[in-house]
Nucleic acid binder design. Structure first.
Length: 193
DNA sequence: CAGCAGATTGACT
DNA sequence: GTCAATCTGCTGC
């Protein structure tokens, strides 16, 4: 029941963390409002050799700078000019591996999440919608995952191997052969309820 | 500098 | 199924 430590993120690869984060609790405390959910879908972006990654070929821009930070840092960026996508940076400084969180199962703070989404039914099954529900925005780019605002906690819900479905990542058709790699991980829908 | 595509979503035909 | 919303970064004039 403790937040995952900084060394946890630094000692593992993106593939390993993407798989192990399934079932863990992603929690935010923003402006005194606490919200959380269990991670049900992730994708691994494995570094400078990964054609689907913003850091492919060692590319370094103002947007993706945080991918080069130490493991345990948040990488939040704006996609299509509208949606905030939340990533967990993994490994050490200058090894830009990251895990995109694509879906959560909401647990705490449902009213606050509904208000942020401006909705009456709660949707958190997409990288843009879950970030909005949890209140994660560009200002959280670079936030520590062992800091006060965003953290990931093991609440004993680690997904068993046989309930994990793997497949190609979503929306990365431009990545050639790398688009086919099985770097998307999700908990089988039949095990969510 | 213009044009275009992108780790998406939701409204509409 | 189609398409607009709208910021970032890359390509080419």
């Amino acid at each position: 029941m403790k937040p995952l430590s900084e060394s946890y993120y630094q000692e593992r690869s993106a593939v390993q963390v993407a798989r192990e984060l399934l079932g863990k609790s992603l929690e935010t405390s923003i402006n005194g409002i606490r919200t959380s959910g269990l991670i049900t879908e992730t994708e691994a972006y494995t570094g400078i050799g990964d054609r689907a990654s913003h850091a492919y070929g060692g590319r370094r821009t103002a947007r993706n700078e945080m991918m080069y930070a130490k493991g345990g840092t948040s990488y939040v960026y704006l996609c299509y000019g509208i949606h905030h996508l939340f990533n967990v940076v993994v490994s050490r400084i200058n090894d830009p591996q990251a895990v995109l969180i694509r879906s959560i199962h909401p647990k705490e703070g449902l009213p606050a999440m509904l208000a942020r989404r401006n909705a009456t039914t709660l949707t958190t099954n997409g990288p843009g919608t879950l970030s909005q529900a949890l209140g994660i925005r560009i200002i959280h780019n670079g936030s520590s995952l062992v800091g006060p605002n965003i953290c990931i906690i093991d609440r004993g819900m680690t997904a068993p191997e046989q309930h994990i479905i793997t497949g190609p990542r979503i929306g990365v058709g431009y990545a050639g052969a790398d688009a086919l790699l099985p770097y998307r991980y999700r908990i089988a829908p039949s095990h969510l309820r």
